[in-house]
Simulated scan of single mutants.
Amino acid sequence: MRRVENRPDLVGDGWDAEPLMTARHVARALGISPKRVYELQIPCVRVFNRTLRYRPADVRAFIDRRTEAA
């Protein structure tokens, strides 16, 4: 059985509660094309050489930064 490292710095912040999102998931949430997601400069995790994933919290922060009063 693989031992899980205890990370007290991450406890309680929900880091493992939400799975990483693909560009397609982000695009669906924002109502844009997946190709456009790569142009938005949302912080991402490079899983492999050509595989990127997005943290839901980073996507929410991007939306919050872009929110304006009407």
Rank of each mutant, 00 (worst) to 15 (best):
R53F: 04
P8S: 02
V11Q: 11
R24L: 10
L52A: 12
H25E: 15
V47S: 06
A27T: 04
P19R: 14
E39F: 02
D9V: 02
V37F: 06
R53T: 06
M21F: 12
W15D: 01
G31F: 07
L40M: 12
L10H: 00
R24M: 08
A29F: 04
H25M: 14
A23Q: 03
R28G: 09
P19D: 14
A57K: 13
Y38W: 02
D13E: 14
R50V: 07
N49A: 12
A57C: 11
V45W: 07
R28L: 09
L40S: 04
L30K: 09
E39T: 12
V59W: 01
L10G: 01
Y54R: 02
P34W: 08
C44Q: 07
N6D: 15
T22A: 13
R53D: 01
L30Q: 10
L10E: 01
D9R: 01
G12M: 09
T51W: 03
I42M: 02
G14C: 13
L40G: 04
G12A: 11
R46Y: 06
H25G: 05
N49Q: 13
T51Y: 06
N6G: 00
T51D: 05
P56I: 05
H25F: 00
Y54A: 01
K35G: 14
R55Q: 10
F48K: 13
Q41R: 15
R50Q: 13
A57E: 15
D16A: 13
T22E: 04
R50D: 13
H25Q: 15
V37N: 01
V11T: 12
G14K: 11
I32K: 12
G12S: 09
P43Q: 03
V26D: 03
A57M: 10
G12W: 04
